[in-house]
Design a protein around this nucleic acid. Sequence first.
DNA 1: GTGGTCTAGACCACA
DNA 2: GTGGTCTAGACCACA
Lengths: 131, 131, 131, 131
Amino acid sequence: MLEIKVNPGGSRPIYRQIMDQVRQGISTKKLAVGEALPSVRQLAESLVVNHNTVARAISELVRDGVLESRHGRGVFVAKRKSPFSAAERKRRFNQAMDEFLAEVLVLDYSHEHIQEQLAARLVKLQGPAAT
Amino acid sequence: MLEIKVNPGGSRPIYRQIMDQVRQGISTKKLAVGEALPSVRQLAESLVVNHNTVARAISELVRDGVLESRHGRGVFVAKRKSPFSAAERKRRFNQAMDEFLAEVLVLDYSHEHIQEQLAARLVKLQGPAAT
Amino acid sequence: MLEIKVNPGGSRPIYRQIMDQVRQGISTKKLAVGEALPSVRQLAESLVVNHNTVARAISELVRDGVLESRHGRGVFVAKRKSPFSAAERKRRFNQAMDEFLAEVLVLDYSHEHIQEQLAARLVKLQGPAAT
Amino acid sequence: MLEIKVNPGGSRPIYRQIMDQVRQGISTKKLAVGEALPSVRQLAESLVVNHNTVARAISELVRDGVLESRHGRGVFVAKRKSPFSAAERKRRFNQAMDEFLAEVLVLDYSHEHIQEQLAARLVKLQGPAAT
DNA sequence: GTGGTCTAGACCACA
DNA sequence: GTGGTCTAGACCACA
């Protein structure tokens, strides 16, 4: 069961926060392939958010091939991989990197610190599974 | 003289691009403390950008204490240090990292690849300095 | 200037009808690369449709790389090509073909007729330009 | 005996998949006029599908005059011809073509490729018949 | 019950 | 002015 939390004040739109957390849930195996998500209305209620907002997050994840929707039945974690071409993946990667660096370089952290923090995060993602 | 470039296509707002580059110019000493910035109009013209957009960037930097405005004389680099509190820096850093990872993890790159790319980027930033 | 018409009764959702017509406008060169679209609100008014519906169509076209949005300025026809991998394009093509055939075979047209109709449509798309 | 297969993952509703296959069974004489269909419950079980879904498909086919229900006896293939008016057939055909082209044209395939693929598909359909 | 679409209307961010 | 997000609430389609 995936736990999602949403911060309505933040600068990141709510529907994106939901998308991010679903994707992270999948990356970290908290959500297994084929598993069903809570229904749109249930999620909306538990997040105290309008159902349209949840629906938007989910429908974009479906378009990205991360989820699969079966009308009348529910939404499931898809098995498909990234539907994007290598060029598009690179483009998105670079853009994300650009924005990250723009945001972070301004904060005057050392390059080492930035790299260590990234490494620490990635390790945490691989998970408590590792003993 | 600081060279600023602006990418109107990107998803990053133009006024933020300007702010970031001014801040980086100061960090990297391309802009010295006490140095004057070009006027809003000049900047706007050279960047091919609405002058309101430049004005907004400048006024937020003044508000943050990065720049100082002397009425009728122009805008100057302030002598204050990092304008963020430690807590604020950390918060910003973590948020930027969250967003970066959310974007990038779905692209099916390995963790090693992500780290290498970051390292490569950081090296390039120091780059031309190396003699 | 692109002319769009929408049929609110139809089984195809309005936002998809809009997407289809924008894409066709681009395919048939009625919309040039770099050209601006009418604003979301203007389009909504002329189609007698809520602005959210138009916004949805446009935002999905942006995600598909067909359009480019510049905040505060407008929406423009992008120059990017299909961002999808070859496998994904094939998958989408086959799915569209499946649905087309399922819909059409039931109507008892001859195979020749189906092919001729397709050919006729494709010719028409290339346009009145050909003399 | 007609073999029906249903793909629950696809975007096409299950009840429509069933309807289409019954119709095609009749066109291709796999289902003879007057022949009985399996009961709703049997069909539902063999397709691993909710019986309401099967019931819906059948009842719409009855409404369209493709099948005939004889109370207490079962459901039979009716002797009527194509249940669509010429105008209705044309309308459906054109709409299916519109949607197909809308999906497919953005995928950057050449017109030739699209036509070849269609031809190949149609050949395969006649296929196994060829002795 | 579950997903999908749409309107009306508000409010924010950017140029 | 222009795009973007969100809520409240309705109604439809599917299983």
